[in-house]
Design a protein around this nucleic acid. Structure first.
Lengths: 195, 195
DNA sequence: GACGAAATTACACATTGTGCACTTTTCTTG
DNA sequence: CAAGAAAAGTGCACAATGTGTAATTTCGTC
């Protein structure tokens, strides 16, 4: 039952996940800024120093899933049929994530809310998105042959739309499926500039 | 000769400006991460503690002018004639900044380059932009009567375009006027979604 | 089971950011 | 102008962050 990777890597992955969840749980209980790295490390049973071997700080630990999901998004884009136009592929990649997105959308809400309240979290989240924008730009550029600024613009506009959709989604009442809000924002993004 | 505000406020403004310039200068000389808050405070002749009364950290001090310029941009948008469509007003607001933008564009280059290299700077810069996006959204919403997501999308897409333009501008050879690059990106943003 | 690599840990250290009490400077008012 | 109020600057203490380094433990492999 040697599943896909060595025992070592699986333990590391488990620890990372545990750290992420502990960070989330403690932040909900006591507020993000009152949670120390030491407290998180204690909750998982590792040393403070080791925590920093896994994450660059509390923020990264909290946004771990965010990071995972955005990386999955890039993979999905790369897996779209090459003949698809870029913008279509991007939108389709979102729908390809729907199954994995519906379940933990409580987490999405919690994360987004925390990021709104705590500037350091917002900052780190946006920095992560920026790193991802580069990957996404590459994925788009590979698909659309003509070089230039187009891939940059598409990737940036797309990620901006997703960020905006998440933000709108959690202020809405009643709640809609996240994908639905994203579609609305993406439609708006493609048509808002000529009024 | 009591110029526009009390002596107190003018001294504060001068100190803030001096801190900003010292931060920029020291960062260019020794690299951003090797500059301590203490060194900046010493260079200006104030105590470390007082530095934190002016800025929340090195990052804020370095990005001070960025903050100023983006706030000026929002003011410019508010000053555009109300009958102008939102997207037109946004683009015009950029051109209204041209005079104040041409001169210190060396600083713009330096800041942008530093932000690319140092994640903590990028993070804080994006967080600032996010705060500004809210103001910009309001300014747009005041102008365009129909409520909804449109103002959010316009403001976000616009700021994203500016960020992208700055990024493209400093990688280009030969260098063009910044406003020209911004126009190109903004054109692209308004037309890239239907190919 | 033993060896070598990788992970964990303890320790030390420079730095950050903030609360608090105290001093100095500046503004205002009589 | 003098005196007191208000605001800005300072020194000190303290909790917390990150990081280098060297020991120590754990794990994969032979």
């Amino acid at each position: 039952m040697d599943n896909s990777m060595g025992l070592r890597e699986r333990k590391k992955a488990a620890t990372r996940q545990a750290l992420h969840e502990a960070t989330l749980r403690l932040s909900l209980a006591h507020g993000f800024d009152h949670v120390t790295v030491e407290a998180i490390a204690d909750a998982v049973g590792i040393s403070r120093r080791t925590f920093f071997n896994y994450f660059g700080g509390k923020e990264d630990a909290l946004l771990y899933r965010d990071e995972q999901q955005t990386q999955a998004l890039v993979r999905n884009v790369r897996n779209r049929p090459p003949e698809e136009p870029a913008w279509t592929a991007l939108r389709a990649a979102v729908h390809d994530m729907r199954d994995s997105l519906d379940n933990p959308d409580r987490e999405l809400a919690v994360r987004t809310r925390l990021a709104q309240k705590h500037p350091s979290l917002l900052a780190r989240q946006l920095a992560n998105h920026s790193a991802l924008e580069n990957d996404l730009t590459l994925a788009v550029a590979e698909r659309a042959h003509p070089p230039g600024v187009r891939p940059h613009v598409l990737a940036a506009a797309f990620l901006t739309s997703l960020r905006l959709a998440a933000q709108m989604w959690l202020t809405e009442e009643p709640v809609r499926p996240p994908v639905e809000v994203m579609d609305e924002i993406l439609d708006e993004m493609a048509s808002s500039f000529h009024a």
